[in-house]
Amino acid sequence: MSMEKDLSVTVAGVRFPNPVIAASGTYGFGQDYTDLYPLNKLGGISCKGTTLLPKDGNPAPRIAETPAGMLNSVGLQNPGVDAFISKYLPIAKKEGNVIIANVAGATLEDYKQAVQRLDTTDVDMIEVNISCPNVKQGGASWGVSCEGAAAVTKTVRSVTKKPLMLKLTPNVTNIVDIAKAAEAEGADCVSLINTLLGMRIDIKTRRPILKNNVGGFSGPAVFPVAVRMVWQVANAVNIDVVGMGGISTSEDAVEMMMAGAKAVQIGTAVFTDPYSPLKVIEGLKQYMIDNNLNSLEEITGTVQPW
């Protein structure tokens, strides 16, 4: 039982000590959870989405619960990329393992400038959010067409050599085509899925619960959708895939990896149980022992479809 296992995985050339990454938007810049456990327990942290300039986000309420999940319409409230670089990144780098910046923007120029500024930092990877459903200009308009995804990828690729991870929205007709478009323009890997666009209505007031009317749907309820999309994308591209969407247990993580993910991100589960990423890591270690694995990469993409 006490066997030491190496849980490390390599995604787009970056080594993660374990495949569990805190998902962007659910973990801040890491500092809010250090009372419970050190950040270096996680394989990596994808930091809160940042934009070129600070953003106030959407009006409250921004949160609604759903069966086995939740909606959010935070709307990319963030201190801006400069504050991220000067204030939050140094602490995250010092205390955590792989630190991933997450960038969103309205225009190609926004993406370009934000990534340019990150290029000169010691951030390990840049996740490019072309999938935020909560802001008119939050990137989702880029992520819903192959042309848009290609344009953003090409733009950010031209200003950085850092590993680029394109975060894809599930709110599209064919996510495979979007992933391929990103790959063609030089994305080093893709992460999916961002939230599904959803809505809840208070039947007493006939008002949507979210002030933004609609918001991003996440949590265990979306897991099967995420597994399906990761499987489809992983089968169609040659770059690495990071899977997310409703993962809350190590069994979920294994399933996501079998579908084709090299690493996973955990988001909403942290709200239910802040220790869930650690429990997933422990469960993965046990899975390796039980199945006599030397590397978790041995299970990536090993689903045997009928």
């Binding site: 009006p59 409250a60 949160i63 609604a64 959010n72 942290v270 709200f271």
Partner: peptide
């Protein structure tokens, strides 16, 4: 009071 998710400041869900 506001609808909350994380409760610890990470998700910025409970804005005022």
């Amino acid at each position: 009071e506001e609808r909350m998710a994380c409760g610890v400041g990470a998700c910025v869900g409970c804005a005022c």
